[in-house]
Structure formats: structure tokens, C-alpha cells
Design a protein around this nucleic acid. Structure first.
Length: 424
RNA sequence: GGAGAGUUGGCAGAGCGGUAAUGCAGCGGAUUGCUAAUCCGUCAACCUUUAAUUUGGUUGCACAAGUUCAAAUCUUGUACUCUCCGCCA
């Protein structure tokens, strides 16, 4: 979240950011509350100062054995007055707290202004669009022929949108996860975490999923817990409330988790197979960095995610998201999209975002500034490195052979103990 | 599920109705003939004021209600942590 002080002092810039983000949030209410709050505060503080003074003289009188009846009578009325003004103050502060959690992050100055996803900018393409001497099958028929997943039976367990991997499909899914975790920890120096898959309200609020996106999440009301939509939630909260010595920055974590998303409102879109699902697997990269370094760190984060697709030899492109397509908490974001030969389009497998201090303020994550000795909010970033379902789609479709087998890229051989997936 | 203990600054830790001790670490300064010591100050948030890292003030003892002239301290509720018992992969 933004600080109220920041909104007050940079109203023009915040408003411009909101417009660019296509946000309907109204900050004039917030500013009005801010004025009310400061008026109340002034009044309360004067009264409290008086209270403290009289209170001291009562204490001294009593110590000296004198009579404090007059002061006590005065204090009674002051105390009552304080109570009513405090009640007003509390009301205003509640209104502020309610509103400010719905104000999205500001947009970084380097982000192109645009209305929606059609105005995102392709900044890079890597590899070639694969060509086939035969009619390539889509991932669904490949999966069926090779018995890699079973969408009919998964319905018996959890319903549509919950993928069930079978046989070599299950093994391939596991291989992808292991490959990515090993890759990031050994080559990019991330520390591996294996987090809880449920999180409470507070953790969800800290990363920005709550309160705005409640209906997108699976909930367990009995225990006030939510199924995490991404490992970003537990991993960012790893350092919640902590002050990290500046010398220890950046902190880098890689974590596998299952991810749960209700995808409310998206029914009918991309419902085929693995392309849009309620539960999927993902390796997430999270960084805690010095504010001066966060945009440099965003570039390396993107490179780390790209390296996975490169190692697997998959054609992809990078989008720089325009302001209108930026998510609630992000100040800047790149999307990685991998090529699906059968869909004949690019599929998003990763978003790499800089949240600046938006999440850090909510989560109270700071670093100790070495030169001033003061604690300051740090910047958080995260990116998928990467999500498996669409990666699987691209992988199967890209590496399919004329005889119906899948020739696996060498990077996966040690994880599969196999070079080729063939008809059982 | 049952019983008990606890939650105070970056950390450790006292206070148990009358201005939140003290130690360590950090930062700033002073001093001393050097891997360091000693002394002083500072050490959260907010409001106000300022050229300012200045001034004045308020708050802050897990959170919330209450009692009181006055609450870290008393009462009640809630959350979380730990210990023991029970159940269990």
C-alpha cells in the first residue's frame, strides 16, 4: 500500500498513476479523511497535553499530602472531552484504513502508458517458431495418446479444472519442478524454501491478494485460512516484520508450491486442458532488495526466468506490460510467454514484477541503512520461474515427433531418466 | 480437544496504578600512540514547525473494550507463541 503521507504530498502523481492504471479508485475521499484526521489529532493532542500536565500536578500534590480535589474535577471534564474526540478520530482512521488498502501501487515512470493488454509492448523474442513436416497435435491429444493426464477421472475427485497427471505425465511434471528448483538454486543462487500452502488473512493482505481479490481465492472459513494462489504469499511473508541488515541484501528465494485459483468470472475462456486450471504447480522466485537496486534486480529476475525456457529450448517472447494491464500491487511488470504450436499463440508462463515498497509497507519489512543506522522499507520483487501447466503444453507440442513420441530436451534427461516419451 | 505459562524498542530484560529502568548491538560525536578501550548523545510512529537530519507536542508495553482524576500495571474478551496431557500420519 501507499502511505497516506505520500498520497498527500504527491497527489498529482498518484492521480496520474491511477488514471494510467485504469483504476476507478477515488483518492479525494481519502484526502478529505486525511484533513479530518489531522484536525482531530491536533485537538486530541492539545487536550492530552493538558491532561498530562494536570495529572502530574495531582501526583505531586498527593505525594506532598495536599488536596487535589479541584484538579481532579477539572480532569474529569477534560477526560470526557478527550473520549469524544478520540471516538471521532478512531472513526476517521477506520475509514482511512478501509480505503487505503484499495489504492493500487503507483506506476513506474518507465512503464508505457496504455489502456489494456492490447497495448503491451513486445520487447524480445527468443528462438524460432518450431516448424513441422506433419500436422502437429495439440497437448490434449498428445496427452491422451501417451496417457500423460486424465481429465475425466480428475472430475471424480475435485471437478473440472483440477488436473490429474498420470504415468510419465506425472513424472514429467515432477521432473519440471525439480529441474527448475535445481536450476535456480545452483545457477542463480536462490535459497530454496518449501512453504505452507495455506495462509491466513494477514499474510494475504500483506502481499495484496486481500482485501481486493477475496473471491478469487479458495477459503477455509473454519480456520480463517486461504489456499495460496502463489508461493509469493508465504515466501514474501518469510521476512514479515523483520529488519534485515543492509549487507545481507539482496535476499533471494526460490520456492515450489501448488497454486489455487478460483478463476471466478473466467468460465468459458481457455477451458481446454491445461491452459487455465484451478490448481497448478509453480516455482516462484522472490527477492528482497535495496530500494536503489530494485529495477536492476527486476532485469536479472527476468533473465533468471528466461533461462528456464532457454534451457528447454522453447520459443518465447517478453512483453513489457503497459500501465493499464499492470496488476494492483505492481509498479512495473514483464510477462514471459511461451509458444504453443497447436494453439498457434503465445501462452503466459511467468510475470516478473517490481512491487517497490508496496508489499514491504503492508508487511513491515525493512532493512537497516548502514550509513544512517535507520530502518527503511525495502523493495520486493517476484516472478514465476515458471508455472508448469502451459510450460507442459509448449514442451509436448514443440517436441512431438511424427511417430507420436515426444523427444525430451537434454536438460530434462537426468530428471526423467529417459530421452523420449513414447506410446505405452 | 483439555490444562498451564507467556507476549514490553533491533535484541536481551526490569517495572505490577502517578513522566517506559538498565545492558548489548547500530548510528553520530569526543578523547586516548595504533586489531581496541572509555565517555557523551542518539536510537519507533505520528502531528506541528523549519532551509534543515530544526522546534514544540502526542502516541507507543500483542489487539480490543472497561474501571480510574490517572493504566505497561487492575478487570473482561480476542489473537498468537511455548510447555504438559489426549488423539493422530
Amino acid at each position: 500500500m501507499l502511505s497516506l503521507k505520500y498520497i498527500r504530498e504527491n497527489t498529482g502523481y498518484v492521480q496520474e498513476s491511477l488514471t494510467h492504471k485504469q483504476s476507478q479508485v477515488n483518492i479525494s475521499n481519502l484526502l478529505e479523511f486525511d484533513i479530518q484526521r489531522r484536525n482531530c489529532l491536533k485537538e486530541v493532542e492539545v487536550l492530552r497535553a493538558e491532561k498530562n500536565q494536570v495529572s502530574n500536578s495531582i501526583a505531586e500534590l498527593k505525594k506532598a499530602g495536599g488536596n487535589a480535589e479541584k484538579d481532579i474535577a477539572e480532569m474529569r471534564s477534560v477526560s470526557n472531552r478527550i473520549k469524544t474526540v478520540e471516538a471521532d478520530l478512531r472513526k476517521v482512521e477506520e475509514s482511512i484504513a478501509n480505503d487505503i488498502y484499495y489504492v493500487p501501487n503507483i506506476v513506474h515512470s518507465s512503464v508505457p502508458v496504455g489502456k489494456n493488454e492490447t497495448e503491451n509492448i513486445v520487447i524480445k523474442k527468443w528462438g524460432d517458431v518450431p516448424e513441422f513436416s506433419f500436422d502437429p497435435k495439440d497437448h490434449l491429444s498428445l496427452g491422451e495418446d501417451l496417457q500423460l493426464f486424465d481429465f475425466k477421472r480428475s472430475v471424480k475427485m475435485a471437478g473440472a479444472g483440477f488436473p490429474l497427471y498420470t504415468g510419465l505425465g506425472a513424472k514429467l511434471e515432477r521432473a519440471l519442478i525439480n529441474f527448475m528448483l535445481d536450476f535456480h538454486t545452483s545457477k542463480h543462487n536462490y535459497t530454496e524454501l518449501f512453504p505452507p500452502f495455506l495462509a491466513h488473512t494477514n499474510a494475504m493482505q500483506n502481499t495484496g491478494q486481500l482485501p481486493k481479490f477475496k473471491e478469487d481465492m479458495y477459503q477455509i472459513p473454519e480456520d480463517a485460512l486461504y489456499c495460496i494462489p502463489t508461493a509469493e504469499v508465504p515466501v514474501t511473508n518469510f521476512h514479515q516484520g523483520e529488519i534485515i541488515p543492509e549487507a545481507e541484501l539482496p535476499k533471494k528465494y526460490a520456492a515450489y508450491s501448488a497454486c489455487f485459483r478460483r478463476e471466478a468470472g473466467s468460465y468459458g475462456k481457455d477451458t481446454r486442458g491445461l491452459i487455465r486450471v484451478h490448481q497448478f504447480n509453480k516455482v516462484e522466485l522472490v527477492k528482497f532488495v535495496h530500494p536503489d537496486e530494485s529495477y536492476k534486480e527486476l532485469e536479472t529476475l527476468l533473465e533468471n526466468a528466461e533461462a528456464i525456457l532457454q534451457a528447454l529450448g522453447l520459443h518465447y517472447r517478453i512483453l513489457e506490460l503497459c500501465s493499464g494491464d499492470l496488476s494492483f500491487s505492481a509498479a512495473k511488470c514483464y510477462d514471459l510467454e511461451v509458444w504453443s504450436p497447436a494453439e498457434n499463440k503465445y501462452l503466459e508462463v511467468s510475470s516478473c514484477s517490481n512491487f517497490e515498497n508496496f508489499q514491504a509497507r503492508r508487511s513491515n519489512i525493512r532493512y537497516r541503512n548502514k550509513s544512517t543506522g535507520k530502518s527503511e522499507l525495502l523493495h520486493t520483487l517476484n516472478g514465476s520461474g515458471v508455472a508448469t501447466p502451459r510450460l507442459m503444453v509448449a514442451l509436448l507440442e514443440t517436441y512431438q515427433q511424427k511417430d507420436g513420441t515426444i523427444k525430451l530436451p537434454t536438460a530434462l534427461h537426468p530428471f526423467m531418466n529417459l530421452e523420449k516419451i513414447s506410446i505405452p
